[in-house]
Design a protein around this nucleic acid. Sequence first.
DNA 1: TGAAACCTAACGACCGTTAAGTAGGTATAT
DNA 2: ATATACCTACTTAACGGTCGTTAGGTTTCA
Lengths: 217, 217
Amino acid sequence: MPTLQAVRPPTNDTEERLLDKALTLFADKGYEAASVREIIEATGVTRPVLYYYCSSKEDLFQRLVHWKHDAAYRELGKIVNETSGCANRLRAILRGSFTFCSADPRVPRVMFQTTFGPHIPGISEFMAEVGGLRFAIVQQVMQDGVDAGELLGGDAPSLALIFCCLMDQQINVLSRLPHPKRRLTPELADSMVDVFLNGVGSGKRTVPKVPPFQGNS
Amino acid sequence: MPTLQAVRPPTNDTEERLLDKALTLFADKGYEAASVREIIEATGVTRPVLYYYCSSKEDLFQRLVHWKHDAAYRELGKIVNETSGCANRLRAILRGSFTFCSADPRVPRVMFQTTFGPHIPGISEFMAEVGGLRFAIVQQVMQDGVDAGELLGGDAPSLALIFCCLMDQQINVLSRLPHPKRRLTPELADSMVDVFLNGVGSGKRTVPKVPPFQGNS
DNA sequence: TGAAACCTAACGACCGTTAAGTAGGTATAT
DNA sequence: ATATACCTACTTAACGGTCGTTAGGTTTCA
């Protein structure tokens, strides 16, 4: 599992409130539309205070993502390592992601908006890196599943892409609707894994032939 | 099938080039980051020319989306009506969407970025409406499939959401990578339908129980 | 003659960022 | 012991730049 660069979490109360208000505003209006003026106003400090703790708006954003994401990412890797069987691992990933996202729906809103929204110099590259970490975990699980004969129909990267599409877009859509906590339930997580593994068709079962997926060729 | 409001397509050459350059810039940089100054500069006209043809930047965007989207949407509805059987209809929707998106990958980039990206007043509401039209078609196909006993495991809205997640996020991801035309192939479309209907697991088949999905409660 | 298609030149508002200064605590040197 | 230096945590007040938009005038062609 790739390592994460260590980033100092907020030590000061002012700094933490700054990051928290930034999270709210980024989630509501997006990175670009949320101005540093709004952020410092919501926090109740002046502008140079923000630049005292963060070297720029981009640095503020990255610090914020590390703060909310890193512990959960390490937890995800640990859960996968402690679980055996492809189906169980996928359930663990999905339940874990749903739990993480419903605990604070502002986080997935910010992350998916910046990952899949318009390109923002500096931010998009950073989020691609963060998203790649998660994708690598899923891809490894798929590889193990293919090797063990538990998965059919495509190679590991293709299957990982499909699974991540299902997972991410569900979270993206549901975390934007009212009451995301009532929607991102463990029952839904488990049923999504069932759909991925068994499908919803009633007809005779055939094995899909998903073409290979190459990231950048 | 819900009707679309009639919007005058570009009659003038200058107007069409304006919309086309706007499409390029919106796809590359997003709605907010693409300025009217860049758009008029790429077109080779002055700023008041843009405001001669469009009443505002928002109007420019909506005109652009209607221009590229409306004919394809009507085509999609027609294809579904002329196709029978749930699996065939889903294949037709996915193949049609892939063809439409690979014909001009700028279009899905703009549409998904504004639909699933940060909220932009005026734009987000408009795109939710446009996206709702497509979702309604998929949902009706699912309803027919459930009624005919061709689909199991959930109600029509839930299944439609899952299918749209698969479809939209695949298009979203692949249309942002290099060579989207080589990626959004009919073979991939068909295999995605197979995954949706049959799954990729090798184990004993069980029927998923997807919890009901309610749009706004 | 008049409407369609375009121009120059500015408007006010907001953006991210920073220079320069200060209150208050704490460590250090005499 | 007390003056000095230094640090953290903040302040006021601007900087230069980009934004969407428009008032008002000009060309072109039917």
